[in-house]
């Protein structure tokens, strides 16, 4: 722990604390875990990136059905390859931390669920979302009819302006009424 603290400058650390919802311990732990993912020669460089494949080996993400989406949403590379810098990594942990607000959590949840990145949850996104959460094997899948019915229900419940998609504010509206969301949208290192 001592060595990581020295690697992460005091100014940096306080800046991280100011800009994220994480505490000092959490940031230090995150730094430790992050440097473990880096190859040896890059351990000391400040803006090293960890590729997506490496990130996905984290036990906290390994079995998450949204792992690829999480990487793509929080990565700031251009074009987006899902790799994480330490800043991105902290962003990710901050959004999933205990103290993040509902606003932040629902914003990122929306972006994670928005598979085609078009800014609204269309029927295709919803279908993928349901698949992500229920799909195990071909035979246990929801039938097309069931899926259709389910998505009709979902839209009926949340699509206030009746445009056939769920936009961010409609989504946040739904989220604000499901109290389990905040406690379940959480990943701790």
């Amino acid at each position: 722990m001592g060595t990581t603290a020295s690697q992460l400058g005091k100014a940096d650390l306080s800046e991280y604390q100011e800009l994220t919802f994480l505490t000092k311990q959490e940031i230090l732990l995150a730094h430790k875990r992050f440097t473990e993912l880096l190859p040896k020669e890059e351990k000391n460089s400040t803006n090293a990136r960890v590729p997506m494949t490496k990130i996905l080996t984290l036990p906290e993400l390994k079995s998450n059905p949204f792992k690829e989406r999480i990487c793509l949403v929080f990565s700031t590379t251009n074009p987006n390859d899902g790799s994480f810098s330490f800043d991105d990594f902290l962003d990710f942990l901050s959004a999933f931390s205990d103290s993040a607000t509902l606003e932040i959590k629902s914003h990122y949840a929306f972006r994670i669920f928005d598979f085609d990145n078009d800014g609204t949850l269309s029927c295709g996104d919803l279908e993928k979302l349901v698949d992500c959460l229920t799909y195990e094997s071909e035979d246990s899948r929801l039938t097309t009819e069931e899926m259709r019915q389910l998505i009709t229900n979902i839209l009926e419940e949340s699509d206030i302006d009746k445009d056939g998609t769920v936009n961010l504010s409609e989504f946040q509206h739904v989220i604000s009424r499901s109290p389990d969301f905040v406690s379940s949208f959480k990943i701790v290192l």
Binding site: P59, E60, K62, S63, N64, P65, F66, F96, A109, L129, V130, L133, T134, Y135, E136, S140, L142, L150, N153, I154, E157, S158, V174, I175, R177, S178, D180, F181, S184, F185, K186, I187, V188
Partner: peptide, 30 residues
């Protein structure tokens, strides 16, 4: 009385890390 389907979808536990638990959870959710 609201949005049963949404409630189910939104209550996915991101903290689940166990492979078997995730599979089971998916089955239950379905």
């Amino acid at each position: 009385a609201s949005s049963r389907a949404w409630q189910l979808l939104c209550s996915w536990d991101f903290s689940l890390t166990n492979e078997r638990a995730v599979r089971q959870r998916k089955n239950n959710l379905r």
